[in-house]
Amino acid sequence: MLAEAIFFSAVLFTIGVIGVLTRRNAIIIFMCVELMLNAVNLSFVAFARAYGVAGQVFVFFVMTVAAAEAAVGLAIIIAMFRHKQTVNLQNINILKG
């Protein structure tokens, strides 16, 4: 049971990483980051079955913080959209990188 959950969370995390690295839309990148966070939550919950409640408490913190981060992040993306009328990172390159 534990091994399956860990494997699944690793797969989920990898999908998230690949999404962040390949997609160019800020919203989709952010969604992939959320996917990575959920993979983390899954493994915490799975480990918490073996080790006790600390992992579950961690999950609550992660969810709370992810919500706060989403609020700030979407506000920043909207601020960007107001300037450039796009959230595609390929078109957002004033700062030479």
Partner: peptide
């Protein structure tokens, strides 16, 4: 520029 910096930093 500030908005772009914030977005890159955030992501």
């Amino acid at each position: 520029r500030s908005a772009e910096a914030a977005m890159k930093y955030f992501l």
